[in-house]
Design a protein around this nucleic acid. Sequence first.
DNA 1: AATCATTTTCAAAGCGCTTTGAGTATCAGC
DNA 2: GCTGATACTCAAAGCGCTTTGAAAATGATT
Lengths: 341, 341
Amino acid sequence: MNLKELSALLGLSQTTVSRALNGYPEVNEATRQRVEAAARAHNYRPNMRAKSLATGRSMAIGHVIPISSKHEMVNPIFADFIAGAGETYSDAGYDMVLSVVSDEDEERAYRDMAAKGSVDGIIVHGPRANDPRIALLDEIGLPFVVHGRASDVAAEYSWLDINNARSFARATRFLIDLGHRRIALLNGQERMDFARRRREGYVTALAEAGIAPCASLMKSEEMTEHYGYRATRELLSLDDPPTAIVASSYIVSLGVRRAVGDAECKLGRDLSLITHDDDLSYLGNQGDVPVFTSTRSSVRQAGRRCAEILLAKIAADDMTPVQELWETELMVGDSTGPNNN
Amino acid sequence: MNLKELSALLGLSQTTVSRALNGYPEVNEATRQRVEAAARAHNYRPNMRAKSLATGRSMAIGHVIPISSKHEMVNPIFADFIAGAGETYSDAGYDMVLSVVSDEDEERAYRDMAAKGSVDGIIVHGPRANDPRIALLDEIGLPFVVHGRASDVAAEYSWLDINNARSFARATRFLIDLGHRRIALLNGQERMDFARRRREGYVTALAEAGIAPCASLMKSEEMTEHYGYRATRELLSLDDPPTAIVASSYIVSLGVRRAVGDAECKLGRDLSLITHDDDLSYLGNQGDVPVFTSTRSSVRQAGRRCAEILLAKIAADDMTPVQELWETELMVGDSTGPNNN
DNA sequence: AATCATTTTCAAAGCGCTTTGAGTATCAGC
DNA sequence: GCTGATACTCAAAGCGCTTTGAAAATGATT
């Protein structure tokens, strides 16, 4: 069922039917009712391809999901982010188109999306320190919002980030206040902007307490469970092992917990752990007392909000960039305790 | 840069340029070279909206991601599945469009996709026992592939599933062979087809060993870490607690491990655990010896293969349905051991 | 040189929608 | 009864591409 058929059926012109359906004022209310009833009855949905072509807007948002080419991994936080963003899109009548692309092909992916006209805007994931994608998107002229930030990029652009530095400074200070002095950091890859900031925060808090950062206590890798496990084992076998760990992700922390269990130790007693927690739905740090002490921020809500910002930007292209810095919540859980050594 | 401009620039008609670019034989090789060079030089990409409208094919595949309306959760296995499928799509020049939709709106989502013409095919996720979506898609006439199966649906359709029944029977038998008799099952929601089959397998294996299934040992819920934890605590506090557990997901098993740790017990010694493992990249059951004994099947590969099947189906609509039943690998890890009680 | 087959190129129609610019009723006011 | 608003409705152009059916150019054959 297409417009032509529908209007023939109604004995109206395509124009009138189209206007009736799209809420233009210059159509008789009675006519509109009739048209809408017929559309419903015949299950008419305007063909998006045609609509897009005519309006020049594709009613879709692109997400480029980078796959780290080495490890071929997809960060599970995407699932939640996308769930959040997806809700916003659905409500606004937008589709979400995903491109799963390995690091090297990213630039091409963006250019393609723009040139093909398949999306009206883009969400940029996982910005690196001096991320070329921002300049690229600026050049292309496609509206975008960055989830995170890129430190050394001059351009003004919209982003939504959590206050990684402050968050990790607070986390570290929390451990220091509990008497810990040897505090390890299990960070993500430091080519990622957020990881850099987190280390800054960690180092700052140490410095404020007069503690010199120690290279052997600072690790940086892709944030897998296995990494958390391996790193913790290594740390625990040091001559002068840490009494506390700050971890960059819940998943890494699962590995930490496993290593601690293997060593017949107990989190919160023998080793303190504070982790960042993206509040992933399936892994939930729930319970009366959270499992892990954590800096928490819902990545799903971030998804929702990024989508909102982007849709606003698309609606009003001259909008001044929106930049939101969210603070995390410091949730005290069972994995931290005073230094007993 | 569009076709018109490009052909004007080349002094050729749009037809010729289009044909040259799309590899039609009736264009002089020298001309083709010239056209291609110009296209590259000016970074020409055909506008997909227009192309779609003209060809009637949108070069996109739809995935409807159901959000369980109660818990608002997105299963993290989607991340990996989608990564796999995405690779296949990219290679074939297809886009992936995601609809995040709560259970009740699913039917509408499918109808919309079809009517709007925004996709050429659909992957159906998480089929329920007697899933209405299959009849719906059949009726709509949109090519689709089901990841999983729907038990009581008569229609012939393409699906890819793992042999859940056999897999869980093997897992259960493995535990029985180790001397376990009281074996618990932490299943997913049994409105899901896969969960039913898994229970069947479990019950069959018990029956073969002359063990009557015990209701208090069989749980069924959404597969979160927290569920694994809670359920295990409950099981351990029974008068006659199980000595082994079969779990439906790696994530649930993380919760099991946590509960076991809390109880100052050790997996593989005090309690045996065998889990299904979708081989999620970030949670990897890696290491020299896998952490968990598991029935393993890569959901990412499943994604890749489902995508292939769907693309084939789209290419040849009369294709007889492809139905693939994958066996899982039984990986012996550290979480199982003989019954010591 | 005329004819036919083949290769190469083109103009124009069409995909299903929106939107412009114009036309026809309808009605008030003079 | 005529004019000027106002309220509805319409035909047709256009979005950027593919594809059909035909024409022009080339080459081979008689």
